[in-house]
Amino acid sequence: MAKPYVRAYVRPNSLAGYPTGPCFTAGHLAETNAAWRSERPVLTLERCNACLRCYLACPDGAVLLRGRSIDIDYDFCKGCGLCVRECGTHALEMVPENRKGEKK
């Protein structure tokens, strides 16, 4: 499943750039929404058996299907850790944000 397309926000530079009333193609609300995350789920691909319980559990749709495994959309992941709790094979682990990209 492809990541939903979120259009870049371009601020109108004059009245003429505004739509007629509050009615416009969606996509201007947010490009990222994850600023308050203190820990991130990190995937160890070799341990993933593609059960997709993380995909089902994610309340934000931030777990994306990628081939026979998954990927995390860090632009929208809030770091709640539900995917890690659901993961039966310890393929997902929470890693503090100050250790970006590091794995054990």
Partner: peptide, 14 residues
């Protein structure tokens, strides 16, 4: 043009 549409979906009343 200001209406809900399956072919041209819009965000209304935002």
């Amino acid at each position: 043009p200001n209406k809900m549409s399956l072919t041209h979906p819009v965000n209304m009343g935002f």
